[in-house]
Amino acid sequence: MENYEINQRNFEEEFTISPNGFLFDHVSGLTYTLNKTGLFILRRIGEKKNASEIVMEITEKFEVSQERANVDFQEFLVQAKEFGVL
């Protein structure tokens, strides 16, 4: 699986992420809500994990096939990049 290309942000400094899925971007001042799986992915991106690791972890934790998890993961990345979060 190819790895993803993103602007790796400094999660520690630039984001406040709450366990409820609230995200505050200290650079842009914008706020977001993530659902449970979205939050799960974002945290792992913050931990600098690669795409296959993340997808693997999703399938381990949630009831979902690898194909579907992968497609959704890619779509999530596109969305987050568009918002300028990644």
Partner: peptide, 11 residues
């Protein structure tokens, strides 16, 4: 505080 907004938007 930011917490207010967090609580309102998530809960």
């Amino acid at each position: 505080p930011l917490d207010y907004l967090e609580s309102l938007t998530t809960k």
